[in-house]
Amino acid sequence: MNQTIQSRDYDSAPCASKTTERKVGPIIAGTSMALLGLSRRSKSGLALALAGGALAYFGSRRNASEDEVLAHGSVLLNCSPQEAYALYRNFEELPLIMQHLESVTKIGQGRYRWIALGPMGTSIRWDAEMVHDREGEFISWRSLPGSDVDIESAVRFQTAPGNRGTLLSAVTRMDPPAGKLKRIAAKLLNTFMIQQDLRRFKALIETGEIPTTEGQSHGPRSRMTAALRVADPTRPPKGDSEMSEVFNAKRRIA
């Protein structure tokens, strides 16, 4: 399945490079503008996508299979790009920060085995090799043939405007295989999840800990609350139902 990514035809895309090695870099370079452009879904939006993120646009969209997932996130860190890079580059510690990662193990020069946890005790595994590794600037890796999923990821560290620390932006693209793994993989990667992971990363690097209320005292929960907590421990369930009321109200007012 990993061959698919390499056999893709990028020839007709004027800006995109032929090889995946160089693909993810441009994605991240242009993602923000491109997403802005794509979100407008109009001619001018496309123009914006082309102007700002031609590489990202073609790199990510051309010949993409329908199931391809492109997830991105960004966060402002109150530290230097070097500090951010050093914490991020320590892949083996990332499972402490990224909720869906089970483990990352070094398996050779520039190669790591990643295992992510899916729902109901399932897991997916991929071996990845470093594509770029520029200290304090840029990291990217992609999965090798024989992995459960075809996945690649890139992270960029930049000094933020106004000397306000480091702007970290991350993008991950995944082309899940058909069948059961596809459903699992789809649960593992989305923009919300990446953003949550980055917020935990930010909290850790800025404050030395990740904020939590897990394990704190509370009075008796209702049965419904308790059941929903088991189903999805990360969400305050009652909250969600009442949130929808507020959103409906907002819609009705508008």
């Binding site: 402002l76 109150n78 306000r164 620390g165 919300f192 953003q195 949550q196 917020r199 930010k202 909290a203 800025e206 404050t207 990740i210 904020p211 939590t212 209320t213 305050p236 909250g239 949130m243």
Partner: peptide, 25 residues
């Protein structure tokens, strides 16, 4: 307030970026 984020450094303590684990709601 965490005391270390951009907002805490600006003394906008009630806008701390890190102290709300349910920030997304």
């Amino acid at each position: 307030a965490c005391g270390r984020c951009f907002f805490c450094e600006q003394k906008l303590w009630s806008c701390c970026d890190n102290s709300n684990p349910n920030y997304w709601i």
